[in-house]
């Protein structure tokens, strides 16, 4: 026999799930899954494959562009916000991480190389962003995913370089920082 409390809860069941986890949770899951894979870290390879993906996307985008020219009034930012409302917040989260880690590199010679690599990723990301307005339906989500992966790649590069610096500094027999070719 149901009393009115039970009835009330059953009727309003959906409303009990109103809390939202922060976006940090997914970012941490994503990272944990990467670490689980524990493959040797070869980000230059990743960069190359990112470039290949970009080329494919550009080709796909161009074809889509020929087929439908309907939604071009939308700006890239508007389109991104529509496809992935949480993107802006995730971007802020990643940028904050990236800036904090990059700041730690200030006094190390690796700074310039890393800066150049990050700039290269930035270029790729810029193209991805511009591509989004022309992307055929269905491809948009993939672009967003690629954008997010680019952020993760940046974080990984920085983490890797910082890790190496720490390891080298710990080694008293070898006080000079060796050429980092990761």
């Amino acid at each position: 026999m149901q009393d009115n409390l039970e009835q009330f809860v059953r009727t309003n069941r959906e409303a009990f799930d109103d809390a939202r986890p922060s976006l940090k949770v997914w970012a941490d899951i994503d990272r944990a899954l990467d670490q689980k894979k524990s493959r040797p870290f070869q980000w230059r390879k990743i960069l190359k494959s990112a470039a290949a993906v970009l080329l494919l996307l550009l080709a796909g985008g161009l074809i889509g562009h020929q087929i439908s020219r309907g939604t071009e009034e939308n700006t890239a930012a508007e389109t991104l916000a529509r496809i992935s409302p949480e993107l802006a917040e995730l971007e802020a989260h990643y940028n904050q991480q990236i800036n904090a880690k990059f700041a730690k590199l200030a006094n190390y010679p690796q700074r310039e190389t890393v800066k150049a690599d990050l700039a290269q990723i930035d270029e790729t990301m810029e193209e991805l962003r511009n591509e989004i307005v022309k992307a055929p339906a269905g491809m948009e989500k993939e672009i967003v995913t690629n954008l997010l992966r680019s952020y993760q790649l940046k974080v990984q590069i920085l983490e890797r370089v910082l890790e190496r610096i720490r390891a080298n500094e710990g080694d008293l027999n070898n006080p000079t920082l060796d050429e980092t070719s990761i």
């Binding site: 799930d17 109103d18 809390a19 939202r20 949770v25 997914w26």
Partner: peptide, 11 residues
């Protein structure tokens, strides 16, 4: 999958 179930599981 996380998007589908994450919020409910958080609750």
């Amino acid at each position: 999958l996380y998007r589908l179930y994450g919020k409910a599981m958080y609750n």
